[in-house]
Computed example of a mutant assay.
Amino acid sequence: MAVTDCNALPRASRFTTVPIAVLAIVLTVPLGGCSFDLGSWGSDKEKPQAVEQKPTGTISGQSVNDAQGNAARGQALAKSGKTEEALAEFERALALDPYNVPALYGRGLIYQADKQHEQAIADFTAANGLTPQRVEPLLARATSYLAIDKAKEAASDLDEAVQADPNSAPAWSARGVTYERLGDKAKAFTSYGRALALRPKDETARSGLARTGG
């Protein structure tokens, strides 16, 4: 899939020309599977954890509900490639509820697509703080760290990600890319091997395994 050069476009069109499926491509190395299903953040299973960590007495129940509605609309718009409109919904959600994890994560992905990696990292960090056992914000933050040449920070996130979910093929594949960039072929080889075992059609892992000694 060809990716439009976002920096060559006016701001109004830059978001809308970047589909959600390519939001987490790092430089020229696709991390494989790093475009996430934003809808998974809206499950009832995740809501109690995020709500419990909010300061009490500062956000009304109605504001939380309204924010959830905005975030859900943002997710739907993002999935259909309408990222400018999605960003507006995520901003509305966060104005009502700064602790809304789907909005933080979704906005982070849009910032990432626009190569605003510092802003993306801030949103992924906030999302990770609210849902520390989720792989997605760690993997997404690592993607932005790699894009701004902070491979050591990316490696730390990916080490944590594979501990949180040892069955995450995208996390293992990204960890291979990161450790290969750091020159640690042994860790890269092991990571690519784990990724390939979990997802045999992962071409990033397959080629990486060959480069690092497979």
Rank of each mutant, 00 (worst) to 15 (best):
A126R: 15
K187M: 09
E52Q: 10
S207C: 00
S191E: 05
A142F: 03
L9N: 04
A122W: 00
W41Y: 13
L130E: 12
G57Q: 07
I110R: 08
A120H: 03
K45C: 01
G129F: 12
G108W: 13
R11W: 08
T28H: 09
K45Q: 09
K201P: 00
R181G: 07
A95L: 07
R141F: 05
D202T: 01
A151E: 13
V22I: 06
A161K: 02
A174I: 00
P10Y: 01
G74M: 06
S40Y: 07
L38K: 03
R14K: 13
L158S: 05
K187L: 11
I20W: 11
T131F: 00
S168E: 02
A103M: 05
L158Q: 03
P166R: 03
Q75T: 14
S173Q: 04
F36Q: 09
A127S: 14
R134C: 07
A122V: 01
A76M: 12
I59S: 04
A113I: 08
G39R: 02
H117Y: 15
A88L: 07
L23Y: 10
L182V: 09
T17D: 10
A154Y: 07
I121H: 11
A195D: 08
Q53F: 03
D184G: 03
A195L: 03
A195S: 13
A50I: 06
P132W: 10
K201D: 15
K150R: 15
L104C: 13
L9S: 05
G74D: 04
K187V: 12
I59D: 03
T17V: 14
A140R: 11
I148M: 12
D37W: 02
E91Y: 00
I20P: 00
A21F: 04
N65E: 15
E153N: 12
L182F: 13
I110C: 12
I121D: 11
F36M: 06
L130G: 02
E89R: 13
C6I: 15
D123R: 08
G42K: 08
A71V: 02
L182W: 08
Y105I: 05
R211P: 00
Q133C: 00
A154R: 11
T17I: 12
Q49W: 02
L94T: 02
L77S: 06
T17P: 00
S207F: 10
F124P: 03
Q62T: 10
S35F: 06
G183K: 11
Y105L: 12
G33L: 06
S40H: 09
G33C: 02
Q62D: 15
G57M: 05
